[in-house]
Amino acid sequence: MSPYELLWQPFADFAFMRHALIGCLALALGCAPIGLFLVLRRMSLMGDAMSHAILPGAAIAFIVYGLSLTAMSIGGLLAGLVVVLAAGVVTRATQLKEDASFAAFYLVSLASGVLLVSKWGSNVDLMHILFGTVLAVDAAALIFLASVASITLLVLALFYRALVVESFDPEFLQSMGGRGAWAHFAFLILVVLNLVAGFQALGTLMAVGLMMLPAASARLWAKELPALLAIALGIALVAGYIGLLISYHGDLPSGPSIILTAGLAYFVSLAFGARGGLIWRWLGREHLEA
């Protein structure tokens, strides 16, 4: 098999593969920086929680409108926003910490979703929502994915400084009258938006993978924010491309292939990462003089 056949022909020959590739790249552009901020804010499990929280919205939309990606996306978005706002209000109004209030709301949301699907849907539908089908991304879905990626990058660029300060020293921003809560909520809405974008392509469970794995890997290579962002983006983009190729050549489901590729990047980083990779410990290099 020539390199061309291996690396590009699937995309040259099949429109659905081109759609899938562009969809994955757009998704990677939005998800990777969001994941990095989740990791830096010690909210790594939040993406996971939110991915469950959007399930009932998608399920209700599916029951009412059938397998309409638009309806399911809007439903998921609404469910996610309700959970974000409710958990945010509870965090600010009571002594419950953010993780506890998110856990409570997402569990209620998830249970409602499972209840709805098992009563009025079928297991096939549930599998579809949980694992997605990137190979079925059509033109409308592509526009949605591209829009989400654009909005995410624009909002992050605009709120970058506030978000960084809010993560590093929230009291400072608050004491300067800086309204850090706005940056925080804007960020949470971006998380929901990207998960909704991800779930039609990869499924709700897999979309989190494209957020967290590149971000966690980047932490093992770089120590400054711009470099971290670049590395996370690079890994997410490459994982999307290679994962699709593996899925095509190996006749494997696309979502798990993409996430496992990102997982491989994570394990390589874990072993060889310049900042804290395990190999440096195994090598047991002598310490420096100063």
Partner: peptide, 19 residues
């Protein structure tokens, strides 16, 4: 607000942040 500077106790700040 910005004319009153505040140095919190160190524990309040995420010192491992990549800045």
């Amino acid at each position: 607000p910005h004319e009153i500077a505040y140095l919190p106790q160190q524990a309040a700040i995420a010192r491992d942040f990549p800045l």
